[in-house]
Simulated scan of single mutants.
Amino acid sequence: MAGETRLNPVRVSCYECPLRRMPHFRTFSEDELEFVAQFKRGELMADPGTTVLVEGARSAHLYTVLSGWGFRYKILEDGRRQILNYVVPGDMIGLQGAVMAEMQHSVEAMTPMKLCVFERSRLFSLFERHAGLGFDLTWLASREETILDEHLLSIGRRSAIERASYLMAFLFERGRIAGLLDDVRRHIPITQTHFADTLGLSIVHTNKTLKKLADRGYILWRDRGCEVLDPEGLQDTARWTPGEPSMRPFI
């Protein structure tokens, strides 16, 4: 495991949470905000390459991503990795372990990450006392299912260049909604290995496919990631549109 994690006391108050100021996240009622502030137990700092959650682990905590990029993945016995999805600020990780007793996948930090830490043992009181927050957790789980459906469709039916275009367009949209990207900030910290492990392609095939996107002027590949130059062109190539953004919850 590269890097490390460090559990710190609360430094970012829920009342001053930067995510609450972003337009795409729903607002909390006063009672909900007070509950979440008491629910939070600290903050976890993770270096790039750190495994935040391990498949098979029985974690005592849930986490909401406050800053940074990460990804969910599974590994076969022979070491082959499949990246399932990517996580950005506002996403919750560890919920699967809370419901199914242990994690069915791992989570790794792509960049320095800060995560809000919540006690798994208090999850039932959230459903018991705040139906709105309980619905929010259901929404987050349902949204994850929808994303995985689209990823499966991409791997199963899209061509290599359509898959790569979809993934880049999808990540750009996710980063934009989460406040990581905009018209000026267009850098996604993803490597060609990440691409290959997400798309189910060899490194050689991935390299050739990404070169085609670069030749079309859609992306600019860099050593530590990729610059998205034409998200609309990527969407057109993938035959995918993100739809109208809606207010989304977070805990």
Score class of each variant (00 low, 15 high):
D236M: 13
F71D: 02
L171K: 10
Q192G: 13
G132C: 04
H187T: 00
Q235E: 15
A60T: 07
D91T: 05
E55S: 14
T64F: 03
E32I: 03
D78C: 11
F35Q: 05
S125P: 00
P48A: 07
R248Y: 09
E43F: 01
E32A: 04
F250W: 15
L171D: 10
F71P: 00
H61V: 05
Q96G: 03
E244I: 13
A178P: 01
V10L: 13
W240P: 08
L213R: 06
L66R: 11
T191H: 11
D78G: 03
L140P: 02
R222T: 03
A178E: 02
G56R: 02
L181A: 02
R176I: 01
T111F: 09
T5S: 14
T198K: 08
M247P: 05
M113I: 00
R122F: 06
W221I: 10
R163M: 13
V88P: 01
K211T: 05
H205Y: 07
P23K: 14
A131H: 10
S106H: 02
R80N: 06
V65A: 04
Y15A: 11
R20Y: 04
E128Y: 13
S125Q: 11
G42K: 12
R6I: 14
A101D: 15
I251E: 02
T209Q: 07
N8K: 14
H24G: 03
P245Y: 14
L210Q: 08
S154D: 04
L19A: 04
S106Y: 06
T50L: 07
V99F: 15
L199I: 04
S125A: 05
C226P: 00
D91N: 14
V87A: 05
T51Q: 12
R176M: 06
D31R: 15
A214I: 00
V12K: 03
M103K: 10
K40M: 15
E4K: 13
M168R: 01
C226D: 00
L153W: 07
R58F: 13
L148A: 07
P242Y: 04
G200F: 12
R6V: 14
T191S: 15
S13P: 10
L180T: 03
P245I: 15
R26P: 00
R224W: 01
D31W: 04
A238F: 09
L167R: 03
R239Q: 14
A46G: 11
L152P: 00
L213M: 06
R80A: 12
D91W: 02
Q104C: 04
